[in-house]
Amino acid sequence: MTDRWRIRLKVNGKEYEREIETRLNLADFLRHELLLTGTHVGCEHGVCGACTVLVDGQSLRSCLMLAVQAAGKEIATVEGLGDPENLHPLQAAFREHHGLQCGYCTPGMLMTLVEFLRDHPDPDEAEVREAISGNLCRCTGYQGIVDAALAAAASLRENPLKG
């Protein structure tokens, strides 16, 4: 018999309620149940970092958390960062500095860096490299991503996000 639970949680500020199988992981829940396909699924065993989201403000690999464990929590995904007309400073910096090519790793990179820059607003290059060491990028190489993160940090120091 399938074990199903009803959960309520907040994603990017919006309340959702769904009945799910308890074996469903958070990444698949976001993509298949809420149709928020911005969160990418790479290795599905916690190595690549593509599925990184924030849960109650902390980055984690959503392929290693069950959706049922996210009940009552606040999730932040890349969809909540900005939109094409109004990019988040990190997204703008990624575009400016060629921080992506195929874009597969980008949502995970962005969410990782959102947490990192929140806690370390003035990082040096080595700290940025350490911060993204759990996120694999297989095309642009990391230089553009590091440049983008440093530029975004500077821009956020100058114009902090409101709210």
């Binding site: 902390q58 980055s59 690999r61």
Partner: peptide, 9 residues
């Protein structure tokens, strides 16, 4: 030990 994302959990 792993990375920030794994140590958070």
């Amino acid at each position: 030990v792993g990375h920030r994302q794994t140590r958070n959990r």
